[in-house]
Amino acid sequence: MRISKGGLLVIMAFLTPLIVELRTVLSWFGIRLSVVETGALGLALIVAVLIWAMWPSNGDTEAKLA
């Protein structure tokens, strides 16, 4: 874990306004996402953050080796 569980939870929560507003922002550039597409994009972002968080950081690896 690169981040505490609490921190991870807060980051996931913080993704919500970003994803919701991303849809509005994209529409200014003429990209109109449906609700399902927005949801899929959000899910992809969440998975990406989860992978980033779960991936052992160098520090952790060393700690395990030690």
Binding site: I3, S4, K5, G6, G7, L9, V10, A13
Partner: peptide, 16 residues
Amino acid sequence: LKALPWRDPAFTGMAL
């Protein structure tokens, strides 16, 4: 930011 006590509902609630 990572060093903040995010597991504490009192802290996290107030920060959010």
